[in-house]
Design a protein around this nucleic acid. Structure first.
Lengths: 197, 197, 197, 197
DNA sequence: TATGAATGAGGGTTCATTCAT
DNA sequence: CATGAATGAACCCTCATTCAT
C-alpha cells in the first residue's frame, strides 16, 4: 500500500480535476492548460505536477467519467432487460456527450485517442457497451448485423447535432437531440432487409 | 480569348492544391501551411500568393469538391426516383467524407465553417441535400420526422467510424462503413413508432 | 500588504522595460520584439508575458514617461507664472523627445497612437499642455492665435532637428536644439502682425 | 551620348514614376512596391528593373520633385527681394509637403535618408534653401541666429500639423496650416532677444 | 510541494527582391 | 525587355512544458 500524498496535494489534484472537467465540458479540449490552472486557483506547475502532460489530464478527466458510465452500464445490465438496458445506456451516453463538449471531441477521435487511453488504463467502455449490445442482440432487441463500432459511430453522429445548433434555443436543441436519438434507436431495433430502395 | 495565368503558375497552383488536398485528406485541416509548401516543393510565400489565407486554401479545396457533389445531387434529383436519389447521394457523401479527413472535419464543423463558406461562394449543399430529403419524404421513402440536421448528424456519425478504423484492413473498413451506411438508410426508411422498448 | 509579484519576475519585467526603453529611444519603435528579448537576455515569450502586445510595451514605456511629464506640467502650473511655466514645459518636452526617438515617433503619430493610448490610460498630456498654453495666452505671454495643435507641431518640428544631427558632436546638437527651442519660444511670444513681407 | 533605352521602356519608367509619385504622396512611403506596379499596370519586375531597390524609387520620385523645387528657389532668388523670396519658398515647401505624405516622411527622416540621397545625386536643396536664407538674413528680413537645419525643422513641424488633422474638414486643415506657417514666418522675422521670460 | 515566470518552437502572414518564362 | 510567380526571412503572437524560487 503506497504512501498517501500530502493532504493539500490531494486537495489540489481534486480541485484541478474538478475545474478541468467543467472547462473541458464547456469549452472543449483545446482550452489552454493555463486557463484551467487559473480557474482552479493554482499555478500551472501544479497542474503539470499532477498531470505531467495535457493528455494525461484528458485521461484523468475522461477516464474518470468513463468509469462512472461503465458502472452505470453494469448496473443496467443487472437490473434491466437486455433491450431497455442497451437503449437506456445508449441514450445516456448521448446525453452525456451532448452536455460535455470535451467528451464528445474525445469520442469522435479529435485530437485525443480516448479508446487506447482507456485500454491502457484497464478500462473497458468497449466491453461495457459491447456486452449490453451483444445481450440486446441475443434477445432480439437490436438487429444482429451491427457492432460496437457502428453503435459508437451513431452515437457520435447524434452528438454532432448539438454542436451545430448553438445560439438558438437550448430546449429545442435538447428536444431535437432526443428525437434523433429515438430515431436512431428505431433504426437499431428494426429487422428490415437493407437493399437501397 | 481570356488571359490565361502563366503556365508555371498554373502548375504550381495545381500542385499546391493537389498536395494540400492529399495532406488535408490524410492528416486533417490542422497541418501547417509550411508543411504543404514543403511537400509541394515551393516556398511558403507561393502558397500564400495563391491562397492568401489558410481558410481560402480550405475553401479552394473543399468547395471545389462540394461543387461536384452538389452537381451529382442535382443529377440524381433529375434522373432517379426520390428515394434512391436521396439514399444514393447520402451514401456518396459518406464515402467521400470517409476518404477525406479534412472534408469530414469541415462537415463536422471543426475549425472551419464550411457551411457559411459555401454560402458565400454561392454553393448550397444544404439546399441540395435538403431538396433530396424533402422529396424523398414526400414520396414516402424517408420517415417524415427527420430533418436536414438529423441527416447531417447521421452522416457525421458514419464518418467517425472510419476515423476509428485503426489502419488494419482498409477493405474491411470500407465494407464496414458501407454496411453502417446501409443500416442508417434502413433507419431513415423505417416508418415505425419510436417508443424506447 | 499587497501581493508582490515574484522578485525574479519583477527583475525581468524591469529589465525588459529598461532595455526596451533604451532600444526604442535609440532605434525607434520599429525594432522587433525579438531583438528586445535578445538584448534583455530573455525569451520572446517572457516579453509577451509581461506585455502581451507590442503596443502594450509601447504603452508601458511611453505612458510611464508621459505621466512624469504631466506631473511636471502640473507642478510648473502651480509654482510658476503662466508664461515661464508654459515655456519651460515646452522646452522640457523637446529635450525629452530629442533624447528619445521612440517618444518622438509616438508624439509625431507614426505607427502608434499615443494620444488615444494616453486617453485610455486616463492620462491627459493634451490637457496638461493645453492648460498651460491657455493660461500663458491669458497672461499675454503667448500670442493668442496659436492653438494646441500648433504647439505640438512646433515641438515635433524641433524634434526632427535632432534626427538629422548626423552624429558628429552631441553637445553641439544639444546646443543647437536649445537654440531652436528658444527661437520657437520667441515666435510664440511675439505679438506682431503676420503679413508675409 | 548614351544610347537611348527603348521607347516602351521609357514609357514604362515614366508611368511607374508617375504612379509611384501619386501613391507615395497619398499613402506614404510604406506602400508595397507590388501596389505601385499594380496601379501602374506593369509587373513588379518592371519596377525593379528601372529601380532596383525601393530606395532608388524613392530617390527618383523625391529627387525629381526636389529638383523642381530647387529650380523654383533659384527663380525666386532672381526675381524677388531676399525676404519675400525666402518666405515664399518656405511656404511653398510646406504646402508641397502637406500635399505629399511621402515627401513629408522623407523630409522628417522617417525610413529614408533623403538628405544624403540628394547629396549623392548632386542635388542641393540645402544649397538652394540655404542661399535664400542667407540672403534674407543679410537683408535683415530673417533673424541671423537661425540656420538651415532650424528652418527645415520648423518646416517639418508645420507638416506634422496636417498629419494629425485627418478626418475632419480639409479646408479648415489647410487654413490652419497656412496660419501656422504665418506664425512661424513671424518668428523667423522677429529680431527680439530670446531669454525665456 | 506549490508557484508562476521563463522558455522557445511553431503558427500564419507580408513583402522586397530575384529569376524563369 | 516585360512579366509576375517564387522566394524565404522576418514579424508578432500562443502555449505546453520546465525549473528556479
Amino acid at each position: 500500500m503506497a504512501k498517501q500524498p500530502r493532504a493539500d496535494a490531494r486537495r489540489n489534484r481534486a480541485r484541478v480535476l474538478e475545474v478541468a472537467a467543467e472547462v473541458f465540458a464547456t469549452d472543449g479540449l483545446s482550452v489552454p492548460v493555463h486557463e484551467i490552472a487559473r480557474r482552479a486557483g493554482v499555478g500551472t506547475g501544479t497542474v503539470s505536477r499532477h498531470f505531467p502532460t495535457k493528455q494525461e489530464l484528458f485521461a484523468a478527466i475522461l477516464l474518470q467519467r468513463l468509469e462512472q458510465l461503465i458502472a452505470e452500464a453494469e448496473l443496467l445490465a443487472e437490473e434491466q432487460e437486455p433491450g431497455p438496458a442497451f437503449f437506456t445506456f445508449f441514450a445516456t451516453l448521448i446525453r452525456e456527450g451532448a452536455a460535455n463538449r470535451g467528451l464528445a471531441e474525445a469520442l469522435a477521435g479529435g485530437g485525443y485517442d480516448l479508446e487506447s487511453a482507456a485500454e491502457t488504463a484497464g478500462l473497458d467502455l468497449t466491453g461495457g457497451l459491447s456486452a449490453l449490445l451483444t445481450r440486446a442482440q441475443e434477445a432480439g432487441s437490436v438487429r444482429p448485423d451491427v457492432d460496437y463500432a457502428d453503435v459508437k459511430a451513431l452515437m457520435n453522429g447524434c452528438l454532432t447535432r448539438t454542436g451545430a445548433g448553438t445560439g438558438t434555443d437550448p430546449e429545442a436543441d435538447a428536444a431535437a437531440l432526443d428525437h434523433l436519438t429515438a430515431v436512431v434507436c428505431d433504426g437499431l431495433r428494426s429487422r428490415a432487409g437493407s437493399a437501397i430502395d
